[in-house]
C-alpha cells in the first residue's frame, strides 16, 4: 500500500516524541551553560605549567629544556631560557624559563608537548570556556597565566596526577637516600680520618 512506509516512519517519530517524556536516553539535550555534563577525566583543552608549593614562580617544574618547543607541531610555544639556575623539586639546580608563551589561537590541543616532557612539567587543562574579546592579547598566555598548582592538576586528572606524584616521591626518596648515604659516607670518612690524623705522628699509616 502506498503510504505505508511513511506511516511507519511517523509512528517511529511519535514514539521518540512521547518517549522523550519517559526515557532519559531519548532526551539528550543539556541546557548549557546552566547545566553542564560531568567533566571527563581524560579530556584535554590547552596546556598549562605545573608548579609545586605555594609560589608559582619558585615552584615551577619546567627547566626550559625546550623539547616541547621543538616538538610542537604547529610551533605555538616560545621559551627563553634563564641565565641563572635555581633548585628544582628534587633540589638539583636547574635552569628555568625566563619567558614561556603559548599562543592558544595556534595550539591544536594535540598533547604532544605533554608526551615529550621528561619533567612532568606541562599538562593538559580541561577548561573550555575560553572566549575572549581580544583576539591577540588574551589568547597569548604567558608564564603567569599558564602556571597552575599541583593541587589543581590533582583535581582535574586524579589518576594521572597520582602516578606523577608517586614518581616524584620515589625520586625524592632516592635523592634523599643518596644525600644521606653521602653525608654518612662523609661522616664515616671524617671519623676515619680523625683517628688517623691522631695516629699520624706515631705510625704514619695514611701514607
Amino acid at each position: 500500500m502506498v503510504g505505508e512506509g511513511i506511516l511507519k516512519g511517523l509512528v517511529e517519530t511519535a514514539r521518540n516524541f512521547f518517549g522523550s517524556y519517559v526515557g532519559k536516553d531519548r532526551l539528550t539535550t543539556v541546557q548549557y551553560p546552566e547545566e553542564r555534563l560531568p567533566q571527563i577525566e581524560a579530556a584535554r583543552s590547552f596546556p598549562f605549567l605545573v608548579y609545586d608549593g605555594p609560589d608559582w614562580d619558585k615552584g615551577m617544574r619546567c627547566v626550559a629544556c625546550q623539547i616541547c618547543e621543538k616538538e610542537c607541531p604547529p610551533k605555538c610555544i616560545l621559551i627563553k631560557k634563564s641565565a641563572d639556575k635555581k633548585p628544582d623539586a628534587v633540589g638539583k639546580p636547574q635552569f628555568y624559563p625566563a619567558v614561556f608563551n603559548i599562543d592558544i589561537s595556534v595550539c591544536m590541543s594535540c598533547q604532544i608537548c605533554v608526551e615529550v616532557c621528561p619533567f612532568d612539567a606541562i599538562k593538559m587543562d580541561v577548561d573550555y570556556d575560553l572566549s575572549t574579546d581580544d583576539r591577540f592579547g588574551d589568547l597569548l598566555l604567558d608564564k603567569e597565566r599558564l602556571a597552575k598548582s599541583n593541587e589543581y592538576y590533582n583535581a582535574i586528572h586524579p589518576t594521572e596526577a597520582a602516578a606523577v606524584d608517586a614518581h616524584f616521591a620515589e625520586e625524592r626518596a632516592k635523592a634523599e637516600a643518596k644525600a644521606k648515604a653521602a653525608t654518612e659516607a662523609k661522616a664515616a670518612a671524617e671519623a676515619k680520618v680523625a683517628p688517623a690524623a691522631q695516629e699520624q705522628p706515631v705510625g704514619g699509616e695514611t701514607q
Binding site: G3, E4, G5, I6, K8, G9, V11, E12
Partner: peptide, 13 residues
C-alpha cells in the same frame, strides 16, 4: 528505528 523511519518510505524510494 531508523530503518522503520526511512527504508520503506515511498518518498525516499
Amino acid at each position: 528505528e531508523y530503518e522503520n523511519l526511512l527504508v520503506s518510505n515511498e518518498i525516499l524510494m
